[in-house]
Structures are given as structure tokens and as C-alpha cells.
Simulated scan of single mutants.
Amino acid sequence: MRIDLTLPDLVRVGLAAAADPMGELAASLQVLQRRDGGRNAASAAFNRWRYRVWQGLPDSAAVLMWLCRPDAPIPEFLVPAAGRYDLETGLAAVLKADSVSLKAALRTAPADHDLPPWAAAFADGDTAGLPRLVQAMQDYHDLALAPGWDLLCAQVDADLGMRTQVLLHGGVDALLTGLRPKVRWRAPVLETDDGLPGTLPSEGTGLLLVPTYFSVAPSLVPPLPGGVPRLLYPCVRHAAHTAGLDRAARKAPGNALADLLGPTRAAALTILAVGCSTSELAARLGVTPSAVSKHTTVLRRAGLIITHRERNTVLHSLTPLGSALLDR
């Protein structure tokens, strides 16, 4: 997916103020269903959380998973702008979704003969089942997101703090460029690495960047007429980000690991639990990219990380040995 940003758009590019509960709910449903945990480091980071959530999923979650499928656009009516920072307000907005919005959002949804009638009717614009949908969303949130919501917000806030500094010191161009490798900025085109075709038309209303804890791929959310489009992108997460979400927290690297590897390499290993680029790792560690290259070379030779290149970006992630070392 891509969006052409005009000059009026660029002067209105902004960052979200906090975590988006509706966006997190939709993104978590997508990552819950992914089956690439063995190949995708960002997706694999949620394996423990997936296991816990799958054990307690109510039957109503089948409808939510049909609506929020992996590698498909998030239905617009499920992430209303009104609920950008408040779950209750967001659920109230979903409850008020109209027939046109339902039909438009689900025009390409696959048929599912196992859906209850009230949910299957959404594709025809029937709004009668919305109260049941909202209750299913609340039940899912209580199970999957509420136990670790404070931690989630802390991770999103950390990403926002980093991006704010980039914006202050480098401007909008640096902010958009810094979203690599999942988002590519080649003025005036912003392109997301989501595998979905299409172009979101620009209306000069700007673009809101929303770091999303549960995203493993960016997602452009079109606005209602006159509204602001949103780009939900994967936030930079610390290695211990599953604490409170899977109720089996990964231990932060203690003194023993720092004694073994040195404090900087121990911190690098922790950050790389969810994979990131050389530039992202440098930003998180507060060192230069050349210094990061030296540290990653040592970690790679020790068999703790793997490195591969995507175009002009060098990406690093943990090996099973590196992950096992962190878990001790």
C-alpha cells in the first residue's frame, strides 16, 4: 500500500499521543493467527503470549479473527478515530457503525460458513449484530490485552519519545525515513511493506503515525471524509516486552550476562530479541552505527545472532542459542 504525500500533508504529519487501544486490539488479532513464528523474529516474540491467549479464547473470538485476518487490511470501522486513545469510546463508535461502512469494509472478506448468522450478516450491511461484536471485543481485550496494558503503553511511549527526538532534530523527512525497513519513504511517496496493493489518495489532511505494540507489519487506515489517515507501524520493543502479556516474563539480562558479554553487548542482545536494523540498534544503545557493527560481529561469530540484508538495510535477530541465553 502507498500514499502520495503533498506539501499540505507533510506539514500536517504528526505522532500519536499514546497507545491506540482499538489499533492494538486489531493488530493483536492478526498476530495471534500468524504461523510464521519460526521464520519471523518479530512474530516469534509473541509465541508465549499466543499460547496463553489461545488457551482462554471464547467462541466469540472466531468472529474477531475473521474480521482481522493476517495479511489483510484492518476493517476501518474497527479502528475508529474516536477511539484512538480510549477503549470505551472506541467500542461505542463501533456500536454506531452504519450499514455503508460495514459493507465497504467487508467487500473482499472471504465467506465463512462457520460464522454465527449475526456476524455473517455484516457483509450485507446488517448492523443488528454490532452489540454482540462489541461484547466480543471487550471480552477479548480483557483476556489478551488488559493483563499487560501498562507495559504495552510504556513500550509505545518509549517509541514515541524516540520518534519525537528524531522529528525535533531532523524534521519530517528524517521521521519518515526512520520508519525503515517496514516503511519506505521516497518523497513524495510513502510505501508500506504490507504486501497489499493499492494507493491511498491524499486529501491534504496530513498523516498520523501510530506506533503499535502488536504490529509486525505497517497498516494504512483510510479516514472518513475530512479525517486524517493513520499509519499503524510496529513500535521498537525491548526484549522483555512480553512480561505481563504472557505471564511468564523473560528475565532482563542481569549482571551475569553483562559480565559474560560486556554491558553494551548484553543490552544489544536484549534489544535484538525482536530483531531490528543496525541504525535502530544504534539509536537504542546510544552509540554509533560503526560501534554497533563491531558488537554485532562479535555476537554473530559467537552464534548468538544472525544478520541479513534487505536492500540497503542490515537486519539482525537472535539465533535459538541467543534466545536461550537470554532466558536463563
Rank of each mutant, 00 (worst) to 15 (best):
D4S: 12
L5Q: 00
P8F: 00
V11K: 00
V13D: 00
G14C: 07
A19N: 02
A19Q: 04
P21L: 11
M22D: 06
V31M: 10
R34Q: 02
G37Y: 01
A42K: 12
W49V: 09
R52T: 08
L57S: 07
P58Q: 07
S60L: 03
C68E: 05
R69G: 06
R69D: 02
P70G: 07
D71I: 02
V79C: 07
A81Y: 01
T89D: 12
T89K: 12
A93L: 03
A93I: 00
A97G: 07
S99C: 10
A104K: 12
A105T: 11
A105P: 10
A109V: 11
A109G: 14
P110L: 10
A111S: 12
L115F: 03
P117E: 02
G125R: 04
G129I: 06
G129E: 06
P131D: 07
L133H: 01
H141F: 10
D142Q: 07
G148L: 07
A158H: 11
D159F: 01
D159T: 13
Q165C: 12
H169E: 12
A174L: 01
G178S: 13
P181R: 09
R186S: 15
P188M: 04
P201A: 03
S202M: 03
G206K: 02
V210G: 06
T212E: 03
F214G: 14
P218A: 09
P218V: 03
V228T: 10
P229H: 01
Y233N: 08
P234T: 04
V236C: 14
H238V: 13
A239N: 09
A239P: 10
R250M: 13
K251S: 14
K251A: 15
P253M: 05
L257F: 04
A258K: 05
D259H: 09
D259N: 13
T264A: 12
A268V: 06
G275V: 09
S279A: 14
E280C: 13
L281W: 05
R284C: 01
R284T: 02
L285R: 01
P289T: 04
P289V: 05
S290L: 13
A291H: 10
T297W: 03
R300Y: 08
I305L: 08
T307W: 03
E310N: 13
T313C: 14
L315T: 06
P320E: 08
P320S: 13
S323D: 14
L325W: 01
D327T: 14
R328N: 15
